[in-house]
Write a protein that binds this DNA or RNA. Structure first.
Length: 200
DNA sequence: GCCAACGTTGGC
DNA sequence: GCCAACGTTGGC
């Protein structure tokens, strides 16, 4: 179970309140970022591609290592079994959406936060009062074609002008979040892209 | 490798 | 509770 995104620890104060207070629409679609190319953090390789997920036992793995409150809150409070997820490849030669997976286990404590040897260890996370949560995700399928960030970016810019479905895509409006909500409208639009020729 | 954007921290 | 300094993300 390789660690996922690099997200540094911070203290649990304002951000938690801010992030949990906001009761918003509930989502059933998500985008999760992972790095498909090797990058070492405290001597541990962060690489975890969709192919790596496919190779996992039962094609399922825990999404550990997220250390951002907004992302944690989505995993702890909002992600439900059966929700669909875009598996996004980030920090690599060609970033973009590679495939689809789904939630098979809802939020539970991220044990890597308790492990001193883990690169995402957080001494402030107490097993009796865990600070960080994760979900389990299962591979569903690859997209018929990889949808590159460049194509999504071009559409996002176009839609901002034309009031189109991707005008608020979190990939650009909350670019640094590693676990992002996707509206049904966004999901459906992107799902249709895989049947079309690339425009980027 | 650079660096803009933005989240977090900590002094006040 | 403001906000400048700092650190990180992640595309380029």
């Amino acid at each position: 179970m390789p660690p996922k995104k690099k997200q540094k620890v911070s203290t649990d104060t304002e951000s938690t309140k801010k992030a949990t207070k906001k009761v918003s629409v509930s989502y059933s679609h998500w985008l999760m970022k992972s790095e498909p190319e090797s990058r070492f953090e405290n001597g541990v390789d962060m690489k975890f591609s969709i192919e790596d997920l496919q190779k996992c036992s039962n094609q399922t793995d825990c999404w550990d290592g997220v250390r951002n409150y907004q992302a944690r809150n989505f995993m702890r409070d909002q992600m439900k079994v059966g929700n669909k997820i875009f598996f996004y490849h980030s920090n690599c030669k060609v970033p973009g959406i590679a495939g689809i997976c789904q939630i098979v286990k809802e939020g539970y404590p991220d044990h890597t936060a308790f492990d001193k040897k883990d690169p995402h260890y957080d001494k402030l996370s107490d097993p009796k009062n865990p600070r960080w949560y994760m979900v389990d995700v299962k591979f569903e399928r690859m997209l018929k074609r990889f949808i590159p960030l460049s194509e999504l970016k071009a559409l996002y810019l176009k839609h901002k002008q034309s009031d189109g479905p991707l005008k608020n895509l979190a990939l650009f409006t909350a670019a640094r979040l590693s676990v992002q909500p996707i509206t049904s409208e966004e999901w459906n639009f992107i799902m249709e892209l895989e049947n079309k020729e690339s425009t980027a």
